[in-house]
């Protein structure tokens, strides 16, 4: 066997090589640019939340405007088959948006009302808990972000999400996009995507597309800011959230 002295010699030698290697890699590695910073114009918030005033959505067009604004700008493919469709924001009726509540005895108006559904950006999001690669993660401002570069397509988040908000690209998405928005990328086969609260717009100081397109029917703001508009509407109206009993703390509120 190897003697102690030999061992010491070898380990010294090895660490020398290792050290040398590390130093040379550091020295040789070309670091890109000077710095990358946040935009000073970016919207600043500690916990983004959304309140959808369901009373104000009257016509089909009201919904479609919002949905179209989102889907067109985000290059969301239009797949007809509901089994494999991709949707970031969509509508459903009361019974299926809020299953398990006493829908039978609720007012007819509400019962027949349509509700805009999207990712709830839960404060305690199960999807981020289960993701094995941190492809979906919570941003500091509360957005449940989806990193499409990193997603491995394991679909665990889809099992984890209690709101059906996540979409897997079962089909090559580009085949189903009629008109591409050159400002925004598409996704590829085999990754999961969903609403990101338009993080790219917030970072530049703009409101999400849906908020913009709703013309005041959707209120977006920082929940931690006492003076924000959203706090105001939440405190002044009756609001409900989807499946609060699961403890996920959804950040999308419905004013009814």
């Amino acid at each position: 066997m190897i003697s102690r002295r030999d061992f010491l010699k070898i380990s010294a030698f090895a660490s020398l090589i290792g050290l040398g290697g590390a130093i040379s890699i550091n020295a040789l590695e070309k670091k890109p640019g000077k710095n990358v910073l946040k935009d000073i114009n970016a919207l600043k918030g500690k916990r983004w939340a959304m309140a959808i005033d369901t009373r104000k959505f009257k016509t089909q067009e009201d919904f479609e405007k919002v949905i179209r604004a989102c889907h067109k700008n985000h290059n969301v493919p239009e797949i007809a088959n509901p089994l494999h469709e991709v949707k970031w924001i969509w509508t459903d009726d009361y019974e299926h948006s809020f299953p398990g509540t006493a829908e039978h005895y609720i007012s007819k108006d509400i019962k027949e009302r349509k509700f805009l559904l999207l990712c709830n950006h839960c404060d305690n999001a199960p999807c981020t808990r289960v993701c094995p690669v941190k492809a979906t993660f919570k941003r500091e401002d509360g957005i449940t972000m989806q990193d499409m570069h990193r997603c491995i397509g394991c679909k665990f988040c889809m099992a984890g999400c209690p709101y059906g908000a996540r979409n897997y690209n079962f089909l090559p998405p580009r085949d189903y996009i009629k008109e591409l928005n050159p400002e925004y990328p598409t996704r590829t086969l085999g990754v999961v995507e969903k609403c990101t609260f338009c993080n790219q717009r917030i970072d530049k100081g703009l409101l999400p597309y849906c908020v913009e397109a709703s013309e005041g029917k959707i209120i977006f703001g920082d929940l931690f800011d006492m003076n924000s508009e959203i706090r105001k509407v939440l405190s002044e109206n009756i609001v409900i959230r989807r499946k609060v009993e699961l403890g996920t703390q959804p950040m999308v509120f419905y004013i009814i």
């Binding site: 290697g21 040379s24 890699i25 040789l28 590695e29 070309k30």
Partner: peptide, 12 residues
């Protein structure tokens, strides 16, 4: 190998 790897992945 080391120089090749350095060129491809690190030093560029």
């Amino acid at each position: 190998i080391a120089t090749g790897v350095l060129m491809r992945y690190f030093a560029k």
